[in-house]
Structures are given as structure tokens and as C-alpha cells.
Design a binder for these strands. Structure first.
Length: 497
RNA sequence: GGGCCGUUAGCUCAGUCGGCAGAGCACCGGACUUUUAAUCCGGGUGUCACAGGUUCGAUCCCUGUACGGCCCA
């Protein structure tokens, strides 16, 4: 908390602060005293209902609206201004004659661009053809002490855009639009999931064990309990406990946290939606995934998307192919024709870094990541991931080296991960043991051993299909956003020194 | 973690082969009752990211640091 009155260091802030002081002293007017303004019309409403007005026409309807003054053009006894609200923006026409001398002069003297104002007036169209509001009353609702970013170029500095998102949102209406679309996507998810009888639940983000994914967690300490705790890396294991508990179909939309690097596709905290359906398998879930992605696309602009210049077709059905097929297609590697040593030889020839202990299934996964992943531009369900890298997925009974699991790739990036859930507690214990060995061998991302989760499975998890979708990434593709930071309101930033 | 690039006025950006720091917008004062990047007249508001070094002199050259961006792992 700043002590006393912090002296504003920059000139415009100083001037505006002084102006506020004079406004209070000379006019006895406190712009921050307002508690409300009964805004009855949005600017979109005016646009939708009065676009028929011809030049120089005016409608008698009284509009009561409010917003931020973005620009003011003063012309002596008349002014034009641009008002922006949460829906749109519109020109204001302020005249001495229609407002009265005193209120008009008050506006001219005390109101600045950036200020929040309440407006009463009539819809009109100026002789130059611009739909406007002819103002009869303008109430200063809150004063802006800092100037708006440049009106023509807007705010471009990425650092300020992310650190002071409020300024970004004022200056760049497209950014507001991106976050509205993000909200639509999440709302579409809820709508689709609930139409399928799923209920929304909340499970711990703070827990004594971080499971459900292979990732490093953030750790913290609970003082009263005297124990180390972790921020969750995925909600999966809790959600499946709820299926054991007979909730039938559950989903959760929320944050998970991974203590990893920050880049164009990764933020330490991110939003995912995970859903689990009792009595469903991974094929049912693949259909659900398609439905969710398509419904989201429909909600924000359609199934023909352009991402960073590349057309993406989100018309179902999406391509479905196994990891083994895709790797064979692009490298010639045939998993069923080689043993581990031959697989490693193949990988070495392809230039992969091989330490000599990898199984052919690990090699398959690495070949996929190196030679296939980036090329999956159009939506593709990659099916049949190796059991070795899928500690929570049910094995394929026809080939237990693989699981009934898929990942959805769009634009070379993993957007969804799903499988028929492993519900055999004995098998699950073995998988955890295998992960424990990997952890002991130095793999910091190996899955933690969760004894209580095994305990839950011992009560009986029905056959279940589960899915996780990265909301941030899906939003990126549907809003043509280059960086994950463009779809997270307040992305993680290093504190300024 | 490695490499490259950036940091100059509130914003968008020039610039100085090392010699008083620049523009547009914004802002301040004035004129103007149909403008919309309004116009006209007048006004420059700055720790050139930070800390060292070289130099008569550094915003510029060198080194380091911070923050950001891009690429790679």
C-alpha cells in the first residue's frame, strides 16, 4: 500500500490528478461519488434498432447508455466523441443547443478521453452518414487519470499487454472478442456435456499427491497440518474416484499447474476440461470429443478455421489412425517387425538420441514426436498409444502392448487425451510400480504411486471412458491466436525487477 | 538451459559513422455548431531499461544484469 499520497511521476497523470482536484474544488463535483448508472441500452442495441435512420434523421426514443470516451473532437459550440461500451462503439454528437450552455461547457472543460460517462440522448444520423447519439445529457461517472494508448496504432507492447491486460482490453477490442470466444467455448462444453447427462464437480487443486499425468508439480507446505502439498497436475484420479462413487457421468473445468517452462504453447497454469463416463469406452469418447470440438467451432465462427494462415477443416469425422500406422507412414518404421535393439538402431539412424535402454514402444513414441506430431495439421485422432507411456489406460485385449487410448492433434499440437480407463486394480498397481521404477531411475515426470486410488479401484470402477481437453489450446486454434498468452487473461510473467 | 533480437516521451516509432534528444498521436493554452486519424495557431512534457568500462565527451562502442520477444533443446 502506497504511503500518504504518492506523487505521480509523469506529466499527464500529474495534470489529470490536478484537474480532478480542481473539479472537486471549483465545481463541487466528485466523479467518483457515483454508485450506479441505470444503463438501459447498449450501443449494440442502438446500432441494431436505428440503423435505418437516414442522414440528418433523428429518432425521439430516449437512449440511456454509458461507456468510455475513446476520442473527443471539439469544434467550439459542438463536439463529436467516440463512446465505447462492452458491446460496440458509437459516435456521440454533443451540441450546445441540445445540452444547454452550462452542461455543455462543463463537458468541454472537465471531460477528457478515457473518462467513463453516462449518456442520455436520441439516436440520429449525421449529414455525413454516421449513426450517432445526439446527446442531451452527459454525466461524468468516473475520471481517467492516465491517458489511453495511441488511438491509431493501439497498444502493441506485448509486455504491457500481458502485465496490464486492462489497458490491452481497453485499447484492443479484438482482445475482448478473443476472451468472449473463450467464454463461449467453455459454455458450449458445459451445454454439450450436460445434454449428455454429465454433472459438473470440483475436486482438489491442492492435495498431498499430484497424479493423473506425467509432469512436475508445484509444491507448497500446509502449516497447520505440517505436511507438504502439491498443486494438481490433472484432476483425473479424483474424477475416477467419483465414478467408483456412482456419480455416473462427471466433468470438471478448471486449472491445473505444471512446474515447467513457459513458451508459446505452455503456461504454468492452464485450463482443462476432463470428463468421465461410466459404461463408455474410448470410441464413445472419441465421438464426444468430435462433438465438443465441432460445437465449440460452431459457437465462435464455424468449422472452417484459418490458423496463422493455414486452413483447418473441423468438419467431422476427423481422421483416425494408429500411432504405429502414422510412424510407419512417415518413417517406414514397423513396430511389429522389430525387437528393442533393432528399434534403437533404427532410431539412431534417424538421428534420435538413444541411450540404449529404450523399448521399441518408447522408440515408437519418440519417432512419433519427432517425425509425425508437427505434421498433424488437420484434426487427427491418434489411436493406440503404447501401454508403457499410458499408465492409466486400459490395455487393448488384442495387443496388450498398446492401450485403448487416443490423442487429438490439431495444428501439430496435442489438444485432447482420452482412453478407456484402466479399472483393474491389480494391473493399475503394476503400472504404478513401473512408474516408480522410472522415477527411481531419475525420471522426474514419472507418475506418483497413489495407494488410495488403488483402494478406490478395489471397490470396483465400472468400464469407463475419460477425456481431457486443453481449453487454452483449443481456444488458440479457434481464435487464431499465436501464443497461449493471447488466450489467458493474466498469463504467468516474471516479476519486474 | 542455449542462440538471436528488442528496451528512446503516456502510446507507436525514428535517430545520433561518439558532440544540446526527434516525429506523429496523446497532453496543455487558444479559435471553430456536421467531425470521424477533424483542422488551424502556440507549447516538448525524457533517468535514451539498469550497472560498470573505454573516451575530453556515451543514448550510440564494450562487458555484465534485468525484463520481453522469437527460435532451438
Amino acid at each position: 500500500m502506497p504511503d500518504e499520497q504518492t506523487i505521480p511521476e509523469d506529466e499527464i497523470l500529474k495534470q489529470r490528478t490536478d484537474k480532478l482536484k480542481r473539479l472537486r474544488e471549483e465545481e463541487g463535483y466528485d466523479p467518483f461519488a457515483h454508485e450506479q448508472w441505470k444503463k438501459e441500452h447498449t450501443l449494440d442495441f442502438v446500432r441494431e434498432n436505428f440503423s435505418h435512420l437516414a442522414p440528418d434523421d433523428r429518432d425521439d426514443t430516449e437512449i440511456i447508455t454509458a461507456g468510455r470516451l475513446m476520442t473527443i473532437r471539439r469544434h467550439g459550440k459542438a463536439c463529436f466523441a467516440n463512446l465505447a461500451d462492452e458491446t460496440s462503439s458509437m459516435q456521440l454528437y454533443l451540441q450546445l443547443d441540445s445540452m444547454g450552455e452550462e452542461p455543455y461547457n462543463f463537458f468541454k472543460k472537465w471531460v477528457d478521453s478515457g473518462d467513463m460517462v453516462g449518456i442520455v440522448g436520441n439516436p440520429c444520423r449525421t449529414s455525413r452518414g454516421e449513426l450517432s447519439i445526439l446527446v442531451t445529457r452527459c454525466v461524468l461517472l468516473a475520471k481517467a487519470l492516465r491517458p489511453l494508448p495511441e488511438k491509431w496504432h493501439g497498444l502493441k507492447d506485448t509486455e504491457i499487454r500481458y502485465r496490464q491486460r486492462y489497458v490491452d482490453l481497453i485499447a484492443n477490442p479484438d482482445v475482448r472478442n478473443t476472451f468472449r470466444k473463450r467464454a463461449s467455448i467453455i459454455s458450449t462444453f458445459r451445454h454439450v456435456l450436460e445434454a449428455h447427462g454429465s454433472i459438473e464437480v470440483e475436486t482438489p487443486t491442492l492435495a498431498t499427491l499430484a497424479g493423473g499425468a506425467n509432469a512436475r508439480p508445484f509444491s507448497t507446505y500446509h502449516n497447520a497440518l505440517g505436511v507438504n502439498m502439491f498443486l494438481r497436475i490433472a484432476p483425473e484420479l479424483y474424477l475416477k474416484r467419483l465414478i467408483v462413487g456412482m456419480l455416473g457421468r462427471v466433468y470438471e473445468i478448471g486449472k491445473s499447474f505444471r512446474n515447467e517452462g513457459i513458451d508459446i504453447m505452455h503456461n504454468p497454469e492452464f485450463t482443462s476440461m476432463e470428463v468421465y463416463w461410466a459404461y463408455a469406452n474410448y470410441v464413445d469418447i472419441m465421438n464426444l470429443t468430435e462433438e465438443l470440438v465441432v460445437a465449440s467451432a460452431d459457437a465462435v465462427g464455424g468449422r472452417d478455421v484459418v490458423y496463422q494462415g493455414t486452413p483447418i477443416s473441423l468438419h467431422p469425422p476427423f481422421r483416425r489412425a494408429t500411432m504405429a500406422e502414422l510412424v510407419k507412414e512417415s518413417t517406414g518404421f514397423e513396430i511389429c517387425a522389430v525387437d528393442d535393439a533393432q528399434a534403437r538402431d533404427f532410431a539412431r539412424k534417424k538421428g534420435l538420441d538413444v541411450d540404449g535402454k529404450e523399448s521399441r514402444f518408447i522408440i515408437l513414441t519418440e519417432l512419433f514426436e519427432t517425425f509425425v506430431e508437427d505434421k498433424l495439421i488437420q484434426p487427427t485422432f491418434v489411436i493406440g498409444l503404447p501401454t508403457e507411456v499410458s499408465p492409466l489406460a486400459k490395455k487393448n485385449p488384442e495387443d496388450p502392448n498398446f492401450t485403448n487410448r487416443f490423442e487429438l492433434y490439431i495444428c501439430g499440437s496435442e489438444v485432447a487425451n482420452a482412453f478407456s480407463e484402466l479399472n483393474d486394480p491389480l494391473d493399475q498397481r503394476e503400472r504404478f510400480m513401473d512408474q516408480l521404477k522410472k522415477k527411481e531411475a531419475g525420471d522426474e515426470e514419472a507418475h506418483a504411486f497413489d495407494e488410495d486410488y488403488i483402494n478406490a479401484l478395489e471397490y470396483g470402477l465400472p468400464p469407463t471412458g475419460g477425456l481431457g481437453i486443453g481449453i487454452d489450446r483449443l481456444t488458440m486454434f479457434l481464435t487464431d491466436s499465436r501464443s497461449i498468452r493471447d488466450v489467458i487473461l493474466f498469463p504467468t510473467m516474471r516479476p519486474k525487477a
